[in-house]
């Protein structure tokens, strides 16, 4: 029973991290109509930057998260402005240019991975953070890092929700997501909003990277598996749905840890994709997804 609870707690913690990466992928998808395949590498960059801030500049952990978010967000905006913009100008995800955009994303992922390799090398870097003794509830130990991760993820989701639903810029972002041409004519600076969407999505991926760093370690190739899991989470929840991304992340996290607990721990990564296949077979639009996104 304790072991099961332990797996569940870890599943939820890793699940919210999947969820916030998926949130970024979904945000970019709704805003730009593209699937961003370099998002795993953005997450990896965020993790490394967090490590640099925490250990080389000795800033407190929570501040390192914030710094990594800002720097990675700016990096994302630069990438979008310099590389992706030319392609998105020519049309979104449903056009030939959208296909080029996907390939450009793959290329960007290779480029970013190699840049990280040149800067930080191929070794896995430990990211020790002293959270103190775990909470103890009866027989269950609840590491403080898990709690910190869950709280940070909740703050991010809440912040994003308030930003999108309560602010006028959030309203503008939603208008851009629904129809860029009309938003443009309504006096909204669409290119600026797209940069903003991209920056925010990259910043929250960076937060995920810094949050997961202390639990695993930071490594150049960490982005690939995260992208796959976050992608699965986004599809399970319904592509383009922000609450769906979070729920999908939780489901993927719990599902793979229950699989590890009851079936076999050595095939842990299979379960996420098993869930993905099941969802695609029986509810292809995802749990929160719309049937198909039709553009006017």
């Amino acid at each position: 029973m304790e072991a099961l609870l332990g797996f569940l707690i870890f599943g939820v913690t890793i699940g919210v991290v999947y969820g916030i990466v998926a949130l970024g992928i979904s945000l970019i998808y709704t805003g730009l109509d593209i699937v961003h395949f370099a998002h795993g590498e953005i997450y990896m960059f965020g993790a490394f930057l967090g490590l640099v801030f925490a250990h080389q500049y000795n800033v407190p952990y929570w501040l390192a998260i914030l710094c990594a978010m800002i720097v990675t967000g700016l990096l994302g905006i630069v990438i979008e402005r310099v590389f992706y913009r030319r392609l998105t100008r020519a049309g979104g995800g449903y056009t030939v240019a959208g296909m080029g955009m996907i390939i450009c994303g793959f290329g960007m992922s290779v480029v970013l991975q190699n840049i990280a390799f040149l800067i930080w090398g191929a070794d896995a870097e430990p990211f020790p953070v002293n959270f103190g003794m775990p909470y103890q509830i009866g027989e269950i130990f609840l590491p403080k890092s898990y709690v910190a991760t869950a709280v940070a993820a909740l703050v991010l989701m809440g912040g994003l929700h308030v930003f999108l639903k309560k602010t006028k810029i959030g309203l503008a972002v939603r208008a851009v997501a629904q129809n860029k041409d009309i938003a443009f004519l309504m006096g909204i600076n669409v290119p600026l909003m797209i940069s903003l969407i991209f920056g925010v999505a990259c910043a929250i991926a960076a937060a995920a990277g810094v949050l997961i760093g202390p639990m695993q370690s930071v490594q150049v190739e960490m982005g690939y598996l995260m992208l796959m899991k976050a992608f699965a989470a986004a599809v399970v929840g319904g592509f383009g749905s922000l609450p769906g991304a979070i729920l999908g992340g939780l489901l993927v996290g719990i599902f793979e840890n229950l699989g590890a607990a009851y079936i076999s721990g050595s095939h842990k990564d299979i379960y996420a994709f098993l869930l993905l296949i099941l969802v695609l077979m029986f509810r292809p639009q995802g749990l929160f997804g719309v049937e198909a996104k039709v553009k006017a």
Binding site: F163, T167, K168, L171, A172, R174, Q178, M186
Partner: peptide
């Protein structure tokens, strides 16, 4: 903007004229 409410459809246009900092509404 069919997924937004009637009022929000109007506010999209109106807000291009209101001037306050992005973080202020929070």
């Amino acid at each position: 903007f069919s997924e937004m409410t009637v009022l929000q459809n109007l506010l999209v246009g109106y807000h291009t004229h209101t001037k306050y900092a992005a973080a202020a509404p929070i």
